[in-house]
Simulated scan of single mutants.
Amino acid sequence: MPTLVKAWTDAQQRLKAAGVDSPAIDARLLLEAASGATRLDILTDPYRELSAEQAGALEGYVERRLKREPVARILGRKGFYKILLGVTRDVLVPRPDTESVVDVVLQAFPEAMSFTMLDLGVGSGAILLAVLAERPAAKGLGVDVSEEALAVARENAANLGLADRAAFLRGDWTAGLGDESFDLVVSNPPYIRSAEIETLDPEVRDHEPRLALDGGPDGLDAYRLLAPEIMRVLKPGGVFAVEIGWDQSAEVEALFKAAGGDQVRTAKDLATKDRVVTGVKNPLGSDGRTG
C-alpha cells in the first residue's frame, strides 16, 4: 500500500499533468479526506501506509478531480471566510472573491451593533452566515428561488449554531418583503454574460448551477431588477453591498444611483479587481444632507 507521502506525490503529479490548478493543495485535501490524516500527519508521519479502502477512496477522488469536478463538490464542503460550509450541486461553491462582500459589511457595522440583514440569492448561506458569525447581535433573512439551495443554507446555519438568528424564505428576490425592512441588504447575483458561460473553466461551466451564473446578454439583468428593489426594502440610512463582475462597476454603480443610492462606490477584492458595489439609502431624502 502507498504511504501518505507517496500517495500525495502521485496524486499531485497526475493532477499537474492534467492541467489542474493548484495540484499540490488539491491532492493534499483529497488525501486528507480519503485517509483521515491531517496536514500535520502528512508532514510528521509521511511513511504511514494507507489501507486498501483509503487508497481506493483516494483513487476515486482523484479520478473525479481529473474530470475537473471541483474539490469542494467532491468533498461536499468548502471553507469561506472563517466558517466551513456544506455544499451540494444545488448551490454555487463559495469563492474567495465573495469574501470581499463580507469585508465591506464588517467595516460598515461595528461588532456590538444590532442590525437586520437580507441576503438575496442566499445559496449555501455563505455571505449571511459569515456575517452573522462575526456580528453576534445581528439577525438575517436569506431568500432564494431554489428550495434545494435553502435546504443547504438551513443545514449550514444549524451546523454553525446560527439557526436562531438566521431565517430562510423561498422567494423571487424581494417579492413579498415589506418596504424599509432591513438595515443591510447583500447579494451575489448571477452576472456572467450568457455568451461567456461556455468559455468558463470546466469546474464552473460543468458543475455550477446555471441559474446562479447567467446574468443575461450583458450580465446586468439581475442588477436592473435588484437596484430599485434593494432601495425599497432598505431602511433609511441602510447599507447595500452587491458582488459584481470585475468589469461591471460603472454600469452597476449607475443603476444604484438612479434608484436613489447615496455614497455609491466600488470596493476591490484581494486581486485588486473591482468586486463590490456598495452604498447607502439617504436617511434624509435626496437633498444630500447627512446631518
Rank of each mutant, 00 (worst) to 15 (best):
G142Y: 12
R165E: 09
G178P: 15
V122F: 14
A149L: 01
V122H: 08
S181G: 13
G171T: 13
L200W: 06
K139G: 07
R170H: 03
T199Q: 13
S187Q: 11
I127P: 15
F182M: 02
A149C: 08
D172T: 04
V122K: 04
A175D: 10
G140K: 02
E180C: 06
A138P: 05
A126C: 13
N188P: 05
D179N: 13
D172M: 11
R135Y: 00
E134G: 03
P136G: 03
A153F: 03
A157K: 00
G178W: 04
L160C: 02
A175Q: 15
N156L: 09
E203Y: 05
T199L: 12
A151T: 11
E203N: 04
R165N: 11
S181I: 05
V185F: 00
V145K: 13
D179I: 03
L141T: 04
L162G: 05
P190N: 12
A137E: 03
D144W: 02
S187E: 09
D164N: 13
E155T: 08
S124L: 15
A163K: 15
P190M: 07
V122E: 14
G176P: 10
I127L: 15
D183G: 06
I127S: 07
R170E: 11
I127C: 13
G171R: 05
N159P: 01
Y191I: 01
T174I: 11
F168E: 14
L169W: 07
P190F: 03
